[in-house]
Design a protein around this nucleic acid. Structure first.
Lengths: 361, 361
DNA sequence: GTAAGCAGTGCTCCTTATTGG
DNA sequence: ACCAATAAGGAGCACTGCTTA
């Protein structure tokens, strides 16, 4: 609430601690003490009550800026991401982090570096100038990142990214999806449906081509781990991938083109696609050629994007638990001393509309 | 950069203005004066240079918290939205606002009220406690909103929403999409393609049913305006909608169900759908019944969501200029005194894959 | 013409003073 | 006269900008 400036013609001023103290007839120190609920100094309940009532009646709200200047902590955190992506990847992680931070009374700065190191440095400086308590450093795809430099006391949690390869992880907290486990789960769901030696993988790159694996000079980790998980699970059942279908990109059209090379020859009984966009392209190609999904061919993919919900039938996809990742990162960064560990979050399987037993030969 | 605390065993401290002043051999006032580039007081160039060099060498960064406490302005803004939506609506607006704010050196708090008035009040209080300079108040769908209470000096811009109906707009700045113009454009593109008296609208609600128009007790404005725009443009050519096809919801399945009622009877030559999700449902139903889009039937819709890009053929949709809306809102809120006007942003037509001349009867 | 001095921003917390028993 | 219990005092956080020398 506001206070009439004595002598001021209608000018008002925000209520401050001194006003509360004056109204309660105590010193500002005592008022501060009471309102912060400290107990290491004794103040009689009657006095405390007077202070609390005065604060209530005046509509007192502490000035967070002054408190921050004094204490060095702000209760504000920064979500620093490379891209507030046009896909909704960032969106879901931001939402998770935001909700968890809010649940703890903290505020969140959102910041986008656009993958630019200078911009990142500049933004982090701006944030540090404002005494943020911690940084959630997020990448739009899983990869190794350079650890941003932060002053002591500003906590850091990596979200959907890991410390530089080869560097010991000591001291860094990270939250990433369990891509290896997802690869295993993709194989598992097909094995359970009865598929055996006619399972194909679509989404690797032709020999000599690294354009898709290297993205802007960066190396996404998901693809390799997904494939590792798949082959590991198949190997446990004495099986192997029947075929690995290369693609020349990551998008719908690439999946469609790759799938069209298959038609005519003997089809696999199931295809595991590297991501949802490829899978959508595959579905489109198969439909054109009269191959029914899942009756003639089963399909599993990764990401759990919104695409998976709008295909017909709904695509079986191992979902990146984006909101959960955001939440977990927030929980870590709120900790006094974040445990320096890599937290793997499971990737659940959503709908299973594209999975059926293999067709009879 | 940091400074060795004299006598401290390795303890360092952030460089402050006093350190710069001492290094340059001037007072803190003079240093402040120089570093803020003020010109209403004369200081010889030589002294200025000494101060600047000292700041540079020490790696001085001003303490934003102290400056905010002193000046009352923070260079931080808040993006307050009802939902950091699961659709990517918010995402694009946030991105636009964020990029524009960053371009002006400002930081942005992101905040989600979940449509809850108490939560909104609490969050805005928290933000005001931190001396934010302004609020971008966004809604995920166009509607009238109650104006949040803010102290004098904190600017407000409404994004994708308008002041309460019937209340004079005076003093409030708002940025909204031009839904009326989009309705006109939808009709126009069909007229240009040669459609005349067999244009249908899909997406109104059956008589007596307001569930879709009222959403959580709130009234989206887009539907009415879109229809108004369509009928106005048709009327100018002496035409009217051939038919209005009701739906029972806003989603893919609703569009699909509504379109299935059509098949068998005489089809319209074109359907304007209230939004992309409905249009996708319509496409799905038509494909099932062998109606080709756009050869047998043209389709236009609204929103310009990601859905429109992934249909086959790509859906003609009048796009909500979400990122642009975010940018414009940011530009308004950065102004000293935002012009109290409603800014209408055009909704451009993207791809036109679902538009063709009407089939011969 | 140059630049230092110092009050003020609102809060926290350490140090000191004043009571009453 | 001494010790709790209670509360006031005031420095300090880093900066800006008016006033003064």
């Amino acid at each position: 609430m506001n206070i009439q400036e004595p002598g001021g013609a209608g000018a008002t001023r925000r209520v401050r601690l001194a006003d509360v103290a004056a109204a309660a007839g105590v010193s500002t120190s005592a008022a501060s003490f009471v309102l912060n609920g400290r107990t290491d100094q004794r103040i009689p309940e009657e006095t405390k009550e007077r202070v609390r009532r005065a604060a209530e009646e005046l509509g007192y709200r502490p000035n967070a800026t002054a408190r921050t200047l004094r204490t060095g902590t702000s209760g504000a955190y920064a979500f620093v991401s490379d891209f507030i992506s046009s896909t909704s990847v960032a969106n879901a992680m931001v939402r998770g982090a935001l909700r968890e931070l809010d649940a703890h009374g903290a505020l969140m700065f959102a910041v986008e570096t656009q993958g630019n190191a200078d911009m990142e440095r500049r933004l982090i400086e701006q944030l540090v100038d404002r005494h943020i308590d911690g940084v959630i450093y997020a990448s739009m795809f899983t990869r190794h990142v350079a650890i941003p430099e932060l002053p002591a006391g500003v906590r850091l949690v990596l979200l959907n990214c890991l410390p530089p390869a080869g560097v010991a992880d000591r001291g860094v907290t990270a939250v990433v999806p369990d891509e290896l486990g997802a690869g295993r789960a993709a194989a598992q769901v097909l094995l359970t449906a009865g598929h055996r030696d006619r399972i194909a993988f679509l989404g690797s790159f032709p020999d000599g081509m690294s354009g898709g694996q290297e993205w802007g000079g960066l190396h996404p980790l998901a693809l390799d781990l997904r494939v590792q998980g798949i082959t590991a699970r198949l190997a446990e059942s004495g099986l192997a991938l029947a075929e690995s279908i290369p693609v020349t990109g990551w998008d719908i059209a690439d999946g469609q083109a790759a799938a069209e090379t298959l038609v005519g020859a003997a089809l696999p009984s199931a295809i595991i696609c590297a991501n949802d966009r490829l899978a959508l392209g595959v579905m489109r190609a198969l439909r054109r050629y009269g191959v029914r999904v899942p009756e003639d061919l089963s399909l599993v993919s990764f990401d759990g994007s919104q695409l998976a919900d709008i295909t017909d039938p709904p695509l079986a996809s191992l979902a990146l638990p984006l909101e959960g990742m955001g939440r977990h990162a927030a929980l870590r960064v709120l900790e006094d001393a974040p445990s320096p560990t890599v937290e793997l979050l499971p990737m659940p399987l959503g709908r299973t509309g594209t999975i059926a037993p293999p067709p009879l030969p």
